[in-house]
């Protein structure tokens, strides 16, 4: 059981990518949303919405990894052990939510480790903590929309 259960309200997403920016800064210390560990997909011109793809720590990546490089952490999330990973990218292909990410700079894939920084800085409560939906500091948000 993961310590943090991410949940999304797709309708709130405005596509700003702050989640990807803070994610890449938190995890890689790089200003590069292309190294974020969740996905934002615009569906325009119709129907006119954004879709967020995020990891629910289902563990399929760990199951399919031929070298057991993806391990379950005590806190319940799965993480890529880069020392074991061979970069075969099978996990990327098999991930049911398309949230095993790759980047030309990196030989191994990377994934969400439930740090929760996206939840803290999403300006629109579009991605939130399922166990603590009131975690946000601007609870009135839903009321004024």
């Amino acid at each position: 059981m993961s310590a943090l259960r991410l949940a999304v309200n797709q309708d709130n997403c405005s596509g700003c990518r702050v989640c990807q920016l803070v994610c890449a800064m938190e995890q890689f210390s790089e200003n590069n949303p292309k190294k974020g560990r969740l996905g934002i997909h615009g569906r325009f011109p119709e129907p006119g919405k954004y879709e967020i793809s995020y990891c629910d720590q289902c563990g399929v990546c760990a199951d399919v990894c031929p070298v057991e490089a993806i391990e379950e952490h005590d806190d319940g999330y799965y993480w890529v052990n880069e020392e074991l990973c061979t970069g075969c990218m099978l996990c990327v292909e098999e991930c049911p939510r398309d949230v095993m990410f790759t980047h030309p700079d990196r030989e191994t894939p990377f994934k969400c480790v439930d740090c929760g920084v996206c939840v803290t800085y999403c300006p629109r409560n579009a991605i939130y903590d399922a166990d603590d939906p009131q975690r946000t500091k601007y609870k009135e948000f839903e009321e004024v929309q």
Binding site: S14, C16, F44, G48
Partner: peptide, 19 residues
């Protein structure tokens, strides 16, 4: 209104996508 649509890194999306 359909959705609030923002620019890159913007917490105050002024874009209002409409139908």
């Amino acid at each position: 209104l359909v959705t609030h649509k923002g620019c890159f890194s913007c917490p105050i999306p002024c874009g209002k996508y409409s139908t």
